[in-house]
């Protein structure tokens, strides 16, 4: 799906846990997530901590969308 969205000219960031799969599929902007059943959450934390964690991942994704890339790029910093 990432490729079809990119193909029409819309930049897309893929948030996913298994980065090697995203690379195989062909996503260009990739942000690693936390875990398969809760990519943007961590039930071990409090709701407030969890939301902060989610916010950080989404901020990283927005940063990725604002960054010029020339090939597949994993934003893991």
């Amino acid at each position: 799906m990432v490729k079809e969205i990119e193909r029409v000219g819309i930049p897309v960031v893929h948030i996913c846990t298994v980065v090697p799969i995203s690379l195989t599929v062909g996503a260009n902007r990739i942000v690693p997530a936390i875990a398969i059943p809760h990519p943007l959450g961590n039930p071990a934390k409090t709701m407030a901590e969890e939301k902060q964690l989610r916010r950080e991942i989404v901020l990283k994704s927005l940063k990725a969308l604002e960054t010029e890339v020339h090939g597949q790029t994993v934003f893991d910093k």
Binding site: M1, E4, I10, P11, V13, P39, S61, L65
Partner: peptide, 25 residues
């Protein structure tokens, strides 16, 4: 997957969406 996304990508384009966040589990 290709068929779904190529259909809704056109809608996203027509709706003036400038960027997409796609999440996977």
């Amino acid at each position: 997957s290709k068929k779904f996304a190529s259909t809704f990508a056109q809608e996203l384009l027509a709706d003036g969406v400038q960027a997409v966040i796609l999440t996977s589990t």
